[in-house]
């Protein structure tokens, strides 16, 4: 690790000021400290933001406002989250280990960087995300954990978060603050697709910080599930994960929100499938056809082509369970 300075921010104002002056924000450190030790990240100044809001409180609209410094474990264990947004609890609990969930913050989880082996190994030459213009060794290399959707010739890294997949399905909003003021960005628009600038993971501007996450009110009678498919039964990143929220009324799918993890540079909302299925009885054949709409643009490689059938089959099983249970 290179030498760095360490300070703490007690308020969002202090944190934005520090961010504006070139500090990197440090939450639980579960990702940043690891990457600093690997030499992938080399910040000279750290500001610890774990002292910022760790409240989870109801919003006037009937949703929840979750402070950026809320620990992952606290989020998953919160009674209101377990009761009203179980898909979020389950997604968080699917990630990492109990120790890491006790450390990692919600904002840090959103900001975590890819686990692509060519990104996390600072001695590998070709990684446009780590070193713009250097190439992408994952293409032609090990691409099992990589994107089949949303990647570019410059980068096929996936975003590794489980939590964000559930947040995408829940239409969460990310609250941002900077010296210029506050703004709110839908989570599904917060992470960028790589295009020709894969070093930019998100739309966060210099000097801007995440202050909170907002969950809209849960639809009445919503049923939800999170299923994670991985190599080890626990403590492993997703090959594919599915977050699904559905409302079924007398055999008709009146509402559906479907998001995938492990297959794209960002949590992937299957908007085309949702639209095709909304208001239908959602038979297995219809679900398969609807999913094909989203996967039509997939660009699988030899190493990750299995994710197309895997994502599709996993989503079909999850939806069949949810719809079947509701019937």
């Amino acid at each position: 690790m290179i030498p760095f300075s360490y300070s703490r921010a007690g308020t969002a104002e202090q944190a934005t000021a520090a961010a504006a002056s070139g500090h990197r924000l440090l939450g639980g450190g579960t990702n940043l400290v690891d990457l600093m030790r690997r030499g992938v990240e080399q910040p000279e100044r750290l500001v610890d933001v774990t002292g910022l809001s760790d409240d989870i409180r109801p919003t006037p609209q009937g949703g929840l406002m979750i402070g950026g410094a809320v620990r992952n474990a606290a989020l998953a264990g919160h009674p209101a989250v377990r009761r009203e947004y179980p898909v979020l609890s389950r997604a968080v609990l699917a990630g990492a280990s109990a120790q890491i969930r006790n450390m990692a913050t919600v904002a840090g989880n959103i900001m975590q960087r890819t686990r692509c082996a060519y990104f996390t190994d600072a001695a590998t030459r070709g990684c446009n995300k780590r070193s713009p213009g250097s190439g992408c060794d994952a293409q032609g290399g090990f691409s099992r954990y990589h994107a089949i959707l949303g990647g570019s010739s410059a980068c096929i890294a996936t975003h590794p978060s489980d939590m964000c997949v559930a947040l995408a399905a829940l239409d969460a909003q990310v609250h941002l603050a900077s010296a210029a003021g506050l703004r709110v960005v839908p989570l599904v628009e917060f992470h960028r697709l790589p295009g020709d600038a894969p070093h930019l993971d998100t739309v966060l501007q210099p000097g801007e910080i995440i202050t909170a996450l907002e969950l809209p009110p849960p639809p009445a009678a919503m049923r939800s599930a999170y299923r994670k498919v991985r190599d080890r039964a626990s403590y492993a990143f997703a090959l594919v994960s599915v977050a699904a929220c559905v409302t079924v009324d007398r055999g008709t799918l009146t509402d559906i929100r479907l998001a995938f993890g492990g297959i794209a540079p960002k949590p992937w909302r299957a908007l085309r499938a949702e639209e095709a299925l909304r208001g239908t009885p959602a038979t297995p054949q219809a679900i398969a056809a609807a999913l094909a709409l989203d996967f039509a643009e997939a660009k699988p490689l030899d190493g990750n082509a299995f994710k197309l059938p895997l994502a599709s089959r996993t989503a079909m099983a999850v939806l069949a369970d949810l719809i079947g249970d509701a019937a």
Partner: peptide
Amino acid sequence: RIMNAGLADYHIPAHL
């Protein structure tokens, strides 16, 4: 080069 030179990526069995 070995591309999974770590315990998070070389998967030995976990309790579950």
